[in-house]
Design a protein around this nucleic acid. Structure first.
Lengths: 196, 196
DNA sequence: CGACTTTTTCCTGTTACGGTAAATAACGGG
DNA sequence: CCCGTTATTTACCGTAACAGGAAAAAGTCG
């Protein structure tokens, strides 16, 4: 059980509905933890059965009623106990790395395309982290404990994305050096002389 | 199906038994992909059923007979096709990050302990990567395509571990600054005056 | 003899992931 | 009035992954 604890962690900030949680898992905590709404609703039921959270129905007009979930004291305790256990370092499990491991048995062109897409992806994410950092922590310092955690997270995220983006560039360069082609050459779609 | 493809990727290097694969998933590729022997044997059966690999029994004396698995042409094709599809960037899913996200609702002492353990862990891994790099690529350059992939992987791994280790240090420093304690103070095991 | 290595297999769970779908409730367009 | 959309929750399906416990078969080492 880890997704459940991630949800508990989210609910420490403020009570939320499953719908809000799903959106949260699409932005802030979702930067390093993916979960779709089905997973979240399922986990919420389990947490409620366990007594770790408590739902309060809020009647709305104009929208379906919503269930706002709040941490119970038991939930807080459970979270603290979970957080007191040593964490297990997760393994990366990135398809891209597996492909690099079998580099001489796969086609390089699609790999190159993939690397370029990933480069863009990680650059985007890096820019996004930097944007949030500048907005939430213009001084680069945190005041409260909650802020400190999020500042550290954002910094780690930014650095990670930066590093992976650099890696993609490097890999692309190395592939180009190996195949003797220029890095991208998307222009000049005319005739191309053979390379051997 | 990703573990299956990781196994196929391993088998491109040379035919292997499940036992050898389990050990491989404990060192080289295991640096970024964890799988125990049960998972591997189960996946091998599936791959064999699919015709992607082929087992050849080798009679041994002194040891139980072993099943050496080789990639079939279909397996090679499947791997190439899989590698030609765009990769999906995996999310980190590290407990430690969730805990930082809920920093103001958890106990800091165990978190500190955890961070120190992680710091050591990532430093060890970094040293290990560097060791292998120096041994396999003393020049820092690769010759063949297979070598290039592994060189890139090792470099990425080394940088990643370095970065996470730095992060742990930084987080520890920040926590210390916040609680007003010194970073570790493991020496001087004599009497320790109460802290409040 | 017992402990250990090598090698494979089977078992039982839980957790996670993915897709498809629907029910409820209102709003707005054509 | 039907249709689509947004907000909100729930259901069911299957597969993949992870965790752990067990054992069998053949030999070596102490």
């Amino acid at each position: 059980m880890a997704l459940g604890d991630a949800i508990l962690a989210c609910l420490t900030e403020r009570p939320m509905t499953g719908y809000e949680l799903a959106k949260t898992f699409d932005s802030s905590i979702g930067f390093f933890w993916k979960a779709d709404h089905q997973q979240i609703y399922r986990e919420l039921s389990k947490l409620r059965d366990r007594g770790h959270i408590q739902g309060r129905e809020v009647v709305q007009s104009g929208k379906p009623n919503k269930l706002v979930y709040t941490l119970t004291p038991e939930g807080r305790t459970a979270l603290r106990h979970w957080a007191a256990r040593p964490s297990t370092p997760a393994s990366t499990k990135d398809d891209l790395l597996v492909r690099l491991h079998a580099l001489d048995s796969i086609d390089i062109e699609p790999l190159r395309t993939d690397l370029m897409a990933r480069l863009e992806h990680h650059r985007d994410r890096h820019a996004n982290y930097e944007r949030i950092l500048k907005k939430r922590f213009p001084e680069g310092t945190a005041e409260g404990r909650l802020d400190l955690g999020n500042l550290l997270l954002l910094r780690l995220g930014a650095r990670h994305e930066q590093m992976v983006a650099d890696f993609c560039e490097e890999a692309l360069d190395a592939l180009s050096a190996m195949t003797g082609k220029a890095t991208v050459v998307p222009l000049d779609e005319g005739k191309r002389e053979g390379k051997g």
